[in-house]
């Protein structure tokens, strides 16, 4: 596929993709159980709860207990999805995830909504920008950050088939739907456009911004390779190295702190293999604040224009 093949078919929040995915899982997999810490509506669990009330656990505002219960449910063959906002699903319960889930190798799916700045007006207390880093540091943890409704729905279904702990990160805002409705393959990057001048590696909401940027840059005559890195761990190292071997420079775009996220992982990978100029489109080690998602994307440098600028800058650094 190429840039022109990604047609916007509508607008929906990625969390609704999760809601649709877990509803489908409810119908197809009797072992799937959903847990939530008093945010069932925000996590779009209403349809699942209505259809499968016996497989829903309302834990109240007690996230540590939720993670432990999820770990216990796996003993006996259940596939629990522990759900809440990304901040409360990671930072608040890091030790519970570390000991009861990751170290204990439990088949828990942590499904986290409202990640990143695009949570909007609630402000920095809720806008976690460190969750990818926290989760990918845990041995054995799979970290997935899908980019639109379709990919989030497909990822939700895919993680239930995978045996092992998973962190699935998605968001609140209504966002363009542009990915095809296709099976999600954990750990396999998607080359959305082939190019030879520069590679843009993007994850989550920034895939859309990068798609817009790539279209703009191609119109200006550049040849842009755009790769959708929906799985941050395990990283598709082969796809990344193959692309950079061709383009000799790259931009990484993510709605996360520049420390600890996809950018850090790709920088490390390149440094260990084929060093190449790299630029980040990410939050520069900062907390967010209250505003609309669009205003925040602009202020913190996560917009289409920032991807375009980063591409031009990194190409200028090529030898």
């Amino acid at each position: 596929m190429a840039l022109q093949d990604y047609v916007t078919t509508g607008n929906k929040d990625t969390r609704s993709g999760f809601g649709a995915g877990i509803l489908e899982l409810g119908k197809t997999n009797p072992n799937v159980v959903a847990l939530c810490a008093d945010l069932a509506g925000s996590l779009k669990l209403d349809d699942f709860i209505k259809a499968f009330p016996e497989r829903y656990v309302q834990v109240g505002i007690a996230e540590a207990n939720m993670i432990g219960i999820a770990a216990g449910l796996t003993i006996g063959g259940k596939i629990p999805f522990a759900t809440t906002f990304a901040n409360f699903a990671t930072g608040r319960v890091y030790d519970q995830i570390r000991q009861s889930v990751a170290y204990s190798k439990k088949n828990v799916k942590i499904a986290a909504s409202h990640a990143g700045l695009t949570l909007g007006e609630d402000g920095a207390t809720h806008q976690i920008l460190e969750d990818i880093g926290l989760m990918q540091m845990l041995p054995g943890m799979v970290v997935i950050n899908p980019c639109d409704y379709n990919q989030t729905k497909a990822a939700t279904i895919a993680v239930a088939e995978y045996v092992g702990p998973v962190y699935l990160r998605f968001g609140r805002p209504v966002w363009p739907i542009f990915m095809p409705d296709e099976k999600f393959v954990i750990g396999k990057a998607i080359v959305m456009n082939e190019g030879k001048d520069v590679t843009i590696f993007a994850t989550g909401h920034l895939v859309w911004k990068s798609l817009e940027a790539a279209r703009q840059l191609e119109a200006e005559g550049l040849s842009v390779e755009l790769i959708n890195i929906h799985t941050i761990k395990p990283l598709d190292e082969e796809a990344i190295l193959r692309s950079v071997a061709k383009t000799k420079c790259a931009v990484v775009a993510e709605e996360h702190n520049r420390i600890g996220g996809l950018g850090s992982s790709i920088a490390s990978l390149l440094a260990h293999n084929t060093p190449a100029p790299l630029e980040y489109v990410a939050v520069n080690d900062h907390f967010g604040e209250s505003a609309t998602p669009a205003q925040l994307m602009t202020k913190y440098g996560l917009d289409t224009v920032n991807v375009v600028e980063a591409v031009k800058k990194v190409m200028g650094r090529k030898g």
């Binding site: 207990n65 432990g68 216990g72 796996t74 003993i75 063959g77 009861s100």
Partner: peptide, 9 residues
């Protein structure tokens, strides 16, 4: 918490 989860299972 873990035991509660196992009991629910």
């Amino acid at each position: 918490s873990v035991a509660i989860g196992a009991a629910l299972a």
